[in-house]
Design a protein around this nucleic acid. Structure first.
Lengths: 126, 126
DNA sequence: CCGTATCCGATCGGATACTG
DNA sequence: CAGTATCCGATCGGATACGG
């Protein structure tokens, strides 16, 4: 079998998928949905800093990619629930690994940034 | 011990780290460096579609975060090698998992997109 | 409650030219 | 080879207003 695709290539489908996932809001949404379906405004409240517009756009992209499903309930007013599909579930573990890495190593990163900035400040031109 | 931080919160350091990593070029660069140090123009050639400007910017960010190191050799002309730090190495496995997920599931995603688009096209207003 | 539509400033990023 | 500097069009994204 051929090694299939190369993510370093332009036009590679795998890379297009990767590009789509390399989005901070998409990752946070997937992580938030891992345990339960969540309604639109609940996501908006939980994921601090996301605007209604961007949340709507990102949800639509993720639904288009088959990573989550959108269910409308004819209550008054209407209720809309977003939930991971099986495909989304298959990805969420990796998303968690990413988030955990960030949690575990953020102090190291913050320190590295401080050192880098201090060095850059003391070497204006050299 | 406190559960430390919440990635859903604005201003959370872990989330800032996550935001930084949620970048398609950053992921591709980290993946490319996993086996060996690579020079600037080699990266530029290998990672198809990246511009010199964006490559330069992204490398600088990753260096600032302590994920990779920049080594200058006084050859003529000068040689510059980028390599993963230990911190970068600790992340690259997760990056690979992401890339592999994309490779394994891209067909499913492409199919889902086609179905979504077909349905949207047949339901212009409804 | 769950969105869409529009406006508009801010940022991104490609192309090009230039330096050590 | 390995960048930096500038220009400038394209895109992003917040705020606001409105509709189902």
């Amino acid at each position: 079998m051929p090694p299939s695709y190369n993510v370093y290539e332009d036009r590679c489908p795998a890379r297009q998928v990767l590009d789509r996932l390399a989005d901070k809001w998409a990752l946070l949404i997937l992580a938030r949905l891992q345990n339960e379906p969540v309604r639109f405004n609940q996501l908006r409240r939980d994921i601090k800093g996301i605007s209604q517009k961007v949340l709507s756009q990102t949800l639509k992209k993720l639904e288009r990619d088959g990573l989550l499903s959108r269910s409308v309930f004819a209550t008054v007013p209407v209720t809309v629930e977003y939930a991971l599909t099986d495909l989304g579930q298959s990805l969420v573990q990796t998303v968690n690994t990413f988030a955990h890495w960030a949690e575990q190593h953020m102090d190291t990163v913050l320190l590295a940034q401080a050192q880098y900035d201090a060095c850059a400040a003391s070497n204006p031109g050299a």
